[in-house]
């Protein structure tokens, strides 16, 4: 009796296990991946002089290391800058993340920092959200008058506190929120 019951339950269990279909689910495509940050600098005095620098991490977090261009620009000039954020993982369907950022402009803000602070200075916002607060996809900057090296850091904060002290002036200290992008470009002024 006992043996029969044990045998029956064993068979039932094995049958159950074997009968299961083992099919993988469809792959999940990352919908919020940012692979590329493209920084375009236009010489404000001579608009024909356009310089483009790219930070690219095509496979997202982990995997292969990102490639980073060095920002090499002539000294002493004022530049109009613009940022293009892309998902280029699928070359046939490049996604422009700028659209999403601009749609939710009140929840996003870019910040720029230079080390040493005088290598690049006079950052000014040129694009704003629906409330007239800075967004920063377009901005202005000034390169130091002498040949020098440094680092330019571009940060994108999601849901920052835009009314905190100094945030509207581009000071990141009190911005809080969550960092979506934090990229450091080596800078060489020549």
């Amino acid at each position: 009796m006992t043996k029969k019951i044990l045998l029956a339950s064993t068979l039932a269990a094995i049958l159950f296990m074997v009968s299961c279909k083992k099919e993988p689910a469809a792959p999940i495509n990352e919908s919020e991946l940012i692979t590329t940050l493209r920084l375009t600098l236009t010489d404000s005095a001579t608009p024909a002089n356009v310089y483009t620098f790219i930070f690219k991490d095509i496979d997202g977090e982990g995997g292969a290391n990102p490639t980073i261009d060095s920002v090499k620009i002539p000294v002493g000039k004022t530049y109009l800058a613009s940022l293009l954020i892309l998902d280029e993982r699928d070359e046939s369907a490049v996604d422009t993340i700028n659209n999403e950022i601009e749609e939710e402009s009140a929840d996003h803000q870019f910040f720029y920092q230079s080390t040493p602070t005088d290598v690049i200075s006079n950052f000014n916002y040129l694009s704003f959200d629906d409330n007239g607060k800075p967004l920063g996809t377009e901005f202005k900057l000034k390169a130091k008058a002498t040949v020098s090296n440094g680092i330019l850091r571009v940060t994108l904060r999601h849901e920052p506190n835009k009314s905190a002290a100094g945030v509207a002036d581009g000071n990141i200290t009190n911005a809080a929120g969550e960092t979506d992008i934090e990229v450091e470009f080596p800078v060489r002024l020549y």
């Binding site: 296990m17 299961c20 689910a25 999940i28 990352e30 919908s31």
Partner: peptide, 15 residues
């Protein structure tokens, strides 16, 4: 006996 199946919802849009 134990049989387990773990499935991700493919609609999450996150790996």
């Amino acid at each position: 006996f134990l049989a387990k199946h773990n499935a991700n919802n493919p609609e999450t849009g996150i790996r």
